[in-house]
């Protein structure tokens, strides 16, 4: 199960994601994030506070959106990632290529820096 809520904070789209980012939900997540990019909202913050689970298919969506956002001059940054999810992100190399913040406010503010 996946929940997605988008909130606009200035020119940053804060995407609150909840549940499981996996092979069964990857399509929905890709669709929502790509829709944001398509309407010119290329500065994305993914709030992972409520993400309980992730698998390789979910990670591949993040990678695709990251590439797309950067290709459009924006970025995808993550915030409030739970420890067990962070561990998977770290092992999969995401901690080295994504900017990850402790909380949503810091992630949103980072775009102003």
């Amino acid at each position: 199960m996946l929940t997605i809520e988008v909130e606009e904070r200035g020119d940053v789209s804060l995407v609150r994601i909840g549940g499981s980012v996996d092979g069964l939900t990857a399509g929905d997540l890709l669709e929502r994030l790509t829709a944001e990019l398509a309407r010119g909202r290329t500065r994305l913050v993914g709030s992972f506070a409520d993400v309980e689970y992730t698998s390789s298919a979910g990670l591949r969506v993040l990678l695709a959106v990251l590439k797309d956002a950067r290709g459009r001059g924006g970025d995808l940054r993550l915030a409030a990632v739970r420890r067990e999810v962070y561990r998977v992100l770290d092992l999969a190399g995401f901690a080295g290529i994504l900017k990850i913040y402790d909380d949503v406010d810091a992630a949103v503010a980072s775009f102003a820096a």
Binding site: G23, S55, S56, A57, L59, R60, D90, L91, A92, F94
Partner: peptide
């Protein structure tokens, strides 16, 4: 090595990988 190999396989292939640590 573990991270770099896992990162590559995870990103490059369509298989669903469920990592149990």
């Amino acid at each position: 090595l573990l991270k770099s190999r896992f990162a590559f396989h995870n990103a490059a292939h369509h298989a669903e990988v469920i990592l149990v640590v």
